[in-house]
């Protein structure tokens, strides 16, 4: 692999090492959401409870293995720490 590509990727990975705010539900959110995507998809935005609920529903419809109990915890966490 070319050095340039490695550098680009290295910086991208550094950039994508998102740290979720610690709080109730953080482990579940990290575990479930990072099954398929970077956590920046959470940390980069601010959404209302309704919007987070919609977002999690779309993830379930795309195949995310999230039970109704998990769903409630994830929506609560995201609203509290990444709400608007």
């Amino acid at each position: 692999m070319g050095t340039g590509g490695l550098l680009v990727l290295a910086s991208a990975i550094g950039q994508s090492a998102a740290v979720l705010i610690d709080g109730p539900g953080v482990e579940l959110v990290r575990q479930k959401c990072s099954l398929c995507h970077d956590l920046e998809h959470i940390t980069a935005i601010r959404q209302t409870r309704e919007e987070w609920a919609d977002t999690v529903k779309v993830m379930i419809s795309r195949g995310a293995p999230i039970t109704p109990e998990d769903e409630a915890i994830i929506v609560e966490y995201c609203t509290k720490y990444y709400g608007k």
Binding site: M1, G4, G5, A12, I13, H37, D38
Partner: peptide, 15 residues
Amino acid sequence: IAEKDPVMKVLTERP
């Protein structure tokens, strides 16, 4: 990424 030009910036890795 190795096949891409170094000017390319990776925005997200997954996806």
